[in-house]
């Protein structure tokens, strides 16, 4: 599998997918067409799903709109399915100190997870 790198913009996150199974999503997410923006990422995720490496996902999102919430929810859903099928999946959800909104989303999404190791991590400053 080839790695994937999508450069971040003011309204779309930076996305990295490594063949080793490490995914990182960081920045802001409020594209005009959220489905079109995330499609290549979900295609890439399908390749990783078919592989056998453990998965590690790092979220460092600062802001996302309500359309992106649904996409993130679907992503968590897929990670949980993988975990339930015996894949080792770990998720780190980073939020900035004082940012209750992003923290609460992390808590909310993690409620979907039973077979994934989830960590909520505060970034200072």
């Amino acid at each position: 599998m080839e790695a994937m790198f999508v450069e971040g913009t003011e309204s779309t996150p930076e996305i990295r997918v490594e063949a080793s199974g490490t995914i990182s999503i960081s920045g802001e997410s409020f594209p005009e067409n959220v489905t079109a923006f995330y499609q290549p990422f979900f295609d890439k995720l399908a390749e990783l799903e078919a592989a056998e490496t453990p998965l590690h996902v790092d979220f460092r999102l600062i802001y996302f709109n309500s359309s992106s919430v649904k996409v993130l929810f679907n992503l968590f859903d897929r990670l949980e399915s993988l975990g339930a099928n015996g894949r080792q999946v770990t998720v780190n959800w980073h939020y900035q100190e004082d940012d209750d909104t992003i923290m609460e989303f992390g808590e909310e999404f993690s409620e979907e997870l039973e077979h994934v190791t989830f960590q909520l991590l505060e970034t200072k400053g």
Partner: peptide
């Protein structure tokens, strides 16, 4: 979108 827009506003 996700149909969540007004809920997002109300929540915020």
């Amino acid at each position: 979108g996700a149909g969540l827009g007004f809920l997002e506003i109300a929540k915020t």
